[in-house]
Write a protein that binds this DNA or RNA. Sequence first.
DNA 1: GTGATTTGACCGAA
DNA 2: TTCGGTCAAATCAC
Length: 363
Amino acid sequence: MESLNEMELKNLINELILGKELAKQLQIHLNAPTSSHETRELLVHRIMNSYDKALYLLRANVIVTDTHSAGMIAGKAESPRSRSTSPRSEDSDREFHRDQQDLRDTPRKRNAVSSWTKFVQVSPGTGLEGPLEDGYSWRKYGQKDILGAKYPRGYYRCTHRPVQGCLATKQVQRSDDDPTIFQITYRGRHTCSQGSSEVNPPPLLPERSEPSLGVNQQQKVLSQAQQSPHELLMSFQTGLKVITENIDTHNQPFSSLNFSSTSTTDAERYAFFPSIIEGSSTINPSPSFVSPNNSGSSYFSVSPSNVNNFVGNLSSHPSESELTDIISAATSTTNSPTFGLQNPYNQMEFEPNFTFDNPGFFS
DNA sequence: GTGATTTGACCGAA
DNA sequence: TTCGGTCAAATCAC
């Protein structure tokens, strides 16, 4: 495994320190006859969550190392979208056409198509499980039991393939170790109008469990789960209140708090650890930059400093106002329903058709 | 009736 | 020869 970068290392250390502090608290509560069972449970959950995040950091680093094309994970690496619709350099142009040629001429040739992988975790208790809706319409064309894998792999292709010849595909594989984690491997790029010009793609929300839902069913889930930004923020802040309260005097299940519940989602992780995705932490895409098919600035970006503050504050039990400020700052750049904390899956990554070499980006 | 999913068979890369 | 990826008929859902 490659060494963690400074940002990731800091986050990792923070999580481990937090876990240690929580363990100390648990020890105190174990020796205190007045301590309630719920409090102890709560601490156990938080400890596990802390370790979960730490492991996620390490795991993400493995992903960057091992993934064939890790653009989705490491922002500093080549984004798959960097070879998309508006190639700037000759090299990227050649690369683009070679990929297209590979897709057409040798569609079954393994590892010949640009691919990138992302890992998505869902909350087991929310009822919303499975791989994420990612703004594109996919049609399942196969499912296969994979050798050594506990769960079958689902094969999806772009719905617009028959009409527009879009060759984008994705594979969804549930993790053996953690069934709440899905490995989604995208192959090829969207050449359909949906992928290249859609202004307001559906917000990204979890699909149901594997085997996944159809498009219609996914959209049902979407409609059920959609909330306004204000509602999201309010609910988020409501959850934040829990963390600022004295756990000894409240028996509210911690699962209601996204940040520290055992049902940790990518929303939390990505909100806390954008460096997992951004790799070097030097890329802090503006909303207009992140997604070409989402010109409504639906993606909020979390700067490394914000994350440092966030993680640091989290470790020392930040006040509600501090957290609110952080969230407010983070959300101030957004004005669409796909507010990043609710739909984090794309906030730290780049849509498959994103182009770094977009002529307007670096200007 | 239409469109999406399921699933066994087939193909081809490794 | 094995196994991952795709095809296509059957089935399901709306």
